[in-house]
Design a protein around this nucleic acid. Structure first.
Lengths: 167, 167
DNA sequence: TATTGTTATACTCTATAACTATA
DNA sequence: TATAGTTATAGAGTATAACAATA
């Protein structure tokens, strides 16, 4: 084998990010904003506090994202029926259609990726990835919560090193 | 199976990012800066133009990153021996040591992840991931270069949808 | 004239802290 | 008093465009 196992995983993560960035280029959408739309699609109309929790960002950040998505016509702020401090953020009909399409394409991507793998390798692949995810989750959790000695580290996208310099 | 194959891959990518963010929290380092250090470690002293190409960002961006890394003592700007317009950016001794340690830990992480997978599943896992990476690379390339009809899309971290809202 | 790096400007994502309006 | 959302401020990453010094 030529490439480290962990580097292959990092490479795949990187390719996903490129694919996303490319898909939204030229629109008002960004990966972060689409993430919020995605959350909204699954949670239904929600307060900004709820969205902040689900997206794991600060409420202040949600304000900005919702501002942008409201300007671009993807979401709407409506008054909360019982709490006059709060607002409900909800998808517009256009955005609902967009997200439904996106979810379909997501399923298609899933199918096309699976097809790229030899059928007899698929079970082991799924088992292996599950094991890796579990292991990683334990690592991150251990380091984050348990005030552990912070075992470093994963270098960001260490892909393609051996390119020569130009000095 | 409960979770989509593609979602498992996205989840793993997300966990890697969390691990990184956590590892550098509280230092002057960030994932982007470490990426630049990583590139420097493999390319050796390089001009900022070269770094811009290798990191796939604009030269202007490299100026800012090198400024920050120079302030924190990780890199040094030295005059280019033959071209007085250019500078060579190189790692300080401290940073060299840091990066060597990071590379070791990277190898250790690779080993610990492999150990988490049943030995009989490893060959299929590696074959499967290679196939997935190849497929993804073709998708991204096709869409990026060949002015293709831009097949969308991968939603960003669609993990954990079924959390109820708070309206 | 073309290239290297920088200044100038701007936008997105992110965070903390202080403030307003409501519970 | 506590909560929901906002304003104010700040820093990181990113980009384009204009400009300097040098090839």
């Amino acid at each position: 084998m030529d490439i480290l196992f962990v580097d292959r995983l990092l490479q795949i993560g990187d390719l996903f990010q490129r694919d996303m960035a490319r898909a939204f280029a030229g629109t008002d959408l960004t990966p972060t904003r689409v993430h919020l739309l995605w959350v909204l699609q699954h949670s239904g109309p929600s307060t900004q506090q709820t969205l902040a929790t689900l997206c794991e960002v600060t409420p202040r950040n949600i304000t900005g994202l919702v501002d942008a998505l409201e300007r671009s016509g993807h979401v709407r702020r409506t008054p909360h029926p019982t709490d006059r401090r709060a607002v409900l953020v909800e998808l517009t009909d256009d955005a609902k259609a967009t997200m439904a399409r996106m979810q379909e394409e997501h399923a298609e991507l899933n199918a096309s990726l699976l097809e790229a793998v030899a059928p007899e390798d698929r079970p082991a692949l799924e088992r292996g990835l599950t094991a890796v995810a579990t292991h990683l989750e334990r690592l991150v959790h251990a380091a984050t919560n348990d005030t552990a000695p912070a075992t470093p580290t994963t270098p960001p996208t260490p892909t393609a090193p051996d390119t020569p310099a130009t000095p």
